[in-house]
Amino acid sequence: MRLFSKIFQVGLATEPLPPGGADVVRLLHEVDARVRRLFGRAVAVRQVDAGSCNGCELEITGLTSPVYDSERFGIHFVASPRHADMLLVTGPVTRNMAVPLLKTYEATPAPKLVVAVGDCARTCGVFQGSYAVAGSVDQIIPVDVFVDGCPPEPTDILRGILAAIGRR
């Protein structure tokens, strides 16, 4: 019972609009029409950690928290690429993860999108040139949108996801 009184005391934790929200809202309205055609405002995301330091993962987890609550945009995370419309790839692609990443891409039914999250995904970051790294994400699979930052904020990731949907 204490749990429920707590729930009612806290009320709605989701921020009405994310920081820098006007931007996102405009983007949201802008892509809404196109999104409806492609995904009907329901985007299933499969996250792939291709060798990240897990900094980006922490921020991605933040997306599903009550504060950012990506679910209200119809974005939710799924367990299998078969269910997914979008791959959210983090980290430089290590040698061990290159084939799995490719297989994940193959396992995803069309139409599909790829969002590469974090600086490492674009440039391999501090891991650049390491013998263990196969390259950036776009060297392995086609990438639709890069989200910069080390790590990027949840808002940035959200913006990236929405942008990717808008590009199709």
Partner: peptide, 14 residues
Amino acid sequence: RRLRVADTWGCGRI
């Protein structure tokens, strides 16, 4: 009605 045949999903294992 598109249908594509691929490997069984096994978390990307080879």
